[in-house]
Design a protein around this nucleic acid. Structure first.
Length: 611
DNA sequence: GCCGTTTTCGGCCCGACTGTTTTCAGTCG
């Protein structure tokens, strides 16, 4: 029985919820399953471990005795009685018909009962034969809609990377801002919360006539299809499959609408409960007194949060992960901002697989206002990417010295991104590593190792005294490649003890660490470092995506190494054994023993949490 | 199915749009 991950268990619970819905169960029961799935999905520690601790599962919000037992069954046997039972009635193919536009549990059930449809092929055949329109509650239009959904189901199967929609989203917003009379346009939804992927875009507009606003929206050159058009709401699908919703909102309730459509849904539900407890009701039109429906706030989000007795919550934190309690106590973290960053400590040049030269990259970093930068080419096992061997590292010393003279006004660290080999040893000998100011270690190969081997590999690599940081720690590629299954908690705990920083890699398809893991890292006392891993000058702008992850993780500038001023960085590096400031060192030993005191470290473990 | 300094039973967020209807159910967010 392979160990189930949190996501695996969450997926089964979500499927169970849909099955129960099709089965006509109490809607609050199905909601309980969905809520439990959400909780597990956002859980940083492995659910398998909690399952072993008495009462730990039941202590999670939304999980009681019954669901805890089902989760234990799932972990032990891969299934539960209820799941097996429902699966006999409703095959997975049938359950997944609810993913299609316009089809929910009720209609899928009707299709199943009346026409014995149980999969997409059956659905398509029946729709083409004109059988759907005969069913009560169905009609010709719905039949067409289903056929249409089926035809695009493939191309819009997943969410899109935030970076992929960034430009079109802002393009749409700018176009609407130009409409006469429009006073305000905001992008809401998961886009505003800066999730690493978005399922659709939500636009809120204030001012202008419905006619003009909707015209500007639906005639944008990226619009492939107008799905709905009304006075206050329209929806379109773009050529790349992305759905965009627009809502026209009056000024007096703009803040309430922005709050509502920014979500998350779970945050909103929790916020409503806070309102209800105070005799208030909150909806997308405003915050009102329950007694007489008189409006208390609605024009801005700040007004609403304030009226509820809490601080304004940055959108990145609105995931119902404890932020509402913190806001009520006035203890929200002061999230890190772009201006806090002083350097970028992971980038490539034409010397390995980058597109711009050493001098060009350093100059570009300087232009972005950075005080320091680390140049980190690949190491030799990535031969394809021009990885450095020991001799190449020695030659590099002079090249870095030259660029320091050529581009004054910015500190340039001689770094390298060193591969972690399959056995956990590093891809360069100690003599070469000693020539470096900044060593990032990364997994690039053999990411399919089983958990036990992967954990041992990473733990061994962390022990090497030259290591400063671990780059894109899990190796995940969003939607393409899963994370290495190493034991994140053990790795973070050891990294904290050794003072090795963990990277939030800004490459849009990596975003690694994720927000959940970055939050866990901070809780374990690990210092984080936000790096672009830029392979070109343009890539330096990816810094925003890592910043979003950091903010979603609740990080402040104190939690992030490259928000430190250069003086603090310099002192930290001076303690090290490499680089320009080299302390006297005994003759090299044959092999570093694991017990050896780390000589150069990125950051000291924090003794206590800052919040 | 979960949850509880009002409750161990009776609540659990709610409005817009669509397509079907002729006053509303289903879906969606």
């Amino acid at each position: 029985m392979p160990a189930l991950t949190n996501a695996d268990v969450a997926r089964v619970l979500g499927t169970l919820a849909t099955m129960l819905e099709i089965d006509g169960a109490n809607p609050f029961r199905t909601r309980a399953y969905r809520e439990a799935a959400r909780v597990l999905d956002a859980l940083p520690e492995p659910v398998a471990r909690l399952a072993g601790e008495e009462g730990a599962l039941e202590a999670l919000p939304g999980i009681g005795k019954d669901l805890a037992q089902k989760i234990r069954d799932l972990l032990a046997t891969g299934s539960t009685g209820l799941y097996d039972e429902l699966l006999k009635k409703y095959p997975l193919e049938l359950v997944h018909l609810t993913d299609l536009q316009g089809l929910g549990a009720k209609r899928v059930r009707a299709l199943y009962d009346a026409l014995h449809i149980r999969d997409r092929a059956g659905l398509e055949a029946a729709a083409q034969a004109g059988q759907l329109r005969e069913l009560p509650g169905f009609g010709e239009k719905l039949e067409q809609k289903v056929l249409h959904s089926l035809s695009i189901a493939e191309q819009v199967s997943g969410r899109l990377l935030l970076a992929k929609v960034w430009e079109v989203a802002h393009g749409l917003a700018d176009r609407l801002r130009a409409v006469q009379g429009v006073t305000r346009v905001e992008l809401a939804g998961s886009f505003r919360r800066r999730r690493d992927t978005v399922g659709d875009l939500d636009l809120l507009v204030c001012g202008g006539t419905p006619e003009q606003v909707m015209d500007a929206f639906t005639t944008h050159d990226r619009v492939a299809e107008v799905m709905a058009r009304g006075e206050t709401r329209s929806a379109v699908r773009l050529t790349d499959g992305l759905q965009v919703d627009l809502r026209l909102v009056p000024g007096e309730s703009f803040g309430a609408a922005l709050l509502y459509f920014t979500g998350s849904k779970e945050h909103n539900i929790e916020l409503r409960r806070v309102a209800n407890d105070q005799g208030l009701t909150l909806n997308e039109y405003g915050l009102a007194r329950e007694a007489d429906q008189s409006v208390v706030a609605g024009r801005t989000e700040q007004d609403i949060y304030r009226a509820l007795g809490m601080d304004w919550i940055p959108p990145e934190l609105r995931e119902a992960r404890g932020e509402i309690a913190l806001a009520l106590e006035g203890r929200l973290p002061r999230l890190i901002e772009q201006d806090d960053l002083r350097g970028d400590l992971h980038m490539h040049t034409t010397r390995s697989d980058g597109r711009h030269t050493l001098a060009e990259m350093v100059r570009a970093a300087k232009e972005r206002g950075y005080a320091y930068v680390a140049i980190t080419e690949h190491s030799k096992s990535l031969a394809m990417a021009g990885g450095f061997d020991e001799a190449r590292v020695r030659r590099s010393v002079g090249e870095i010295a030259a660029v320091r003279r050529e581009v004054p006004g910015i500190e340039v660290l001689h770094g390298l991104e060193v591969d972690i080999l399959a056995d956990g040893s590093l891809d360069l000998d100690d003599d070469a590593l000693e020539l470096l100011d900044w060593v990032v270690i990364s997994l690039h190969s053999r990411l399919d190792q089983p958990a036990e081997a992967a954990t041992a590999r990473v733990l061994k690599a962390l022990e090497h005294p030259a290591v400063c940081a671990m780059g894109h720690p899990t190796g995940r590629m969003i939607g393409l490649r899963p994370a290495s299954p190493f034991d994140m908690e053990r790795v973070l705990e050891r990294a904290a003890e050794l003072g090795v920083a963990m990277e939030i890699n800004c490459q849009p398809d990596r975003m690694d660490l994720s927000d959940v893991n970055a939050r866990l890292a901070r809780e374990k006392g690990v210092t984080l470092v936000i790096d672009t891993d830029a392979h070109s000058i343009a890539n330096l702008d990816y810094i925003r995506y890592g910043l979003f992850v950091a903010r979603r993780a609740g990080l402040t500038k104190d939690d992030v190494l490259n928000a430190w001023p250069w003086e603090r960085m310099r002192k930290m590096l001076r303690k090290g054994r490499g680089g320009a400031v080299k302390p006297a060192e005994p003759a090299k030993q044959p092999a570093p023993s694991p017990a050896k005191t780390p000589a150069k470290r990125a950051a000291k473990p924090k003794s206590a949490k800052t919040r």
